[in-house]
Amino acid sequence: MNIFRLAGDMTHLLSIIVLLLKIQATKSCAGVSLKTQELYAVVFVTRYLDLFYSFISLYNTVMKIIFLLTAFTIIWYMRKHKVVCQTYDKEQDTFRVLFLIVPCFVLALLVNHEMSVTEVLWTFSIYLEAVAILPQLVLLQRTKNVDNLTGNYIFMLGSYRALYLVNWVYRYFTELGYRQWIVWVSGTVQTCVYLDFFYYYVQAWRNNERMKLPG
């Protein structure tokens, strides 16, 4: 474990906490894409199957359980909570997620470290995570309302993977023979997907104004 990866994990955890607080405090999920939340739940389920058969560390196990529980809690709020589910703009959140899931799964079958069920599913989760934010970014473009908390959520979600990129550089130079090409390429793509958002987020922050996306 290094400081970059710990910072990345904490930023990821914080992003989820911010989203949960937004939903719980405002009893609203306006501007939040349920599709992205469901894609992330798929990412966590397919990636953390090793919870059942391999123990890495207490930290690793606890964080996986937290990520799984919070992901499903957010989905429960958006689908089942009587007040919150009325604030979900279903008509705008229409991204065809199959166009993300199927290619990622096919790619995981073609490019992986080992042709085993758990390894293919793990690889699938790596590819899927790179594009899981797309429905959320599309929803923002459509609804234009980037409320502060949702903006912070997306910013931190993008930042965590950027911190992981630094972690991979660090591990490459400090751990002889450490290679994770699949994760490195996918993580780079994932971070690039956020660059446009980062640009407008930082611009709004610099001008100390509410974030607005181009027409």
Binding site: R5, D9, H12, D50, I56, S57, N60, M63, K64, F67, H113, E114, S116, E119, W122, Y164, N167, G177, R179, Q180, V183
Partner: peptide
């Protein structure tokens, strides 16, 4: 092979 075992990241 070593990459498969070392999924030590979240």
């Amino acid at each position: 092979k070593e990459e498969v075992e070392k999924h030590d990241e979240l």
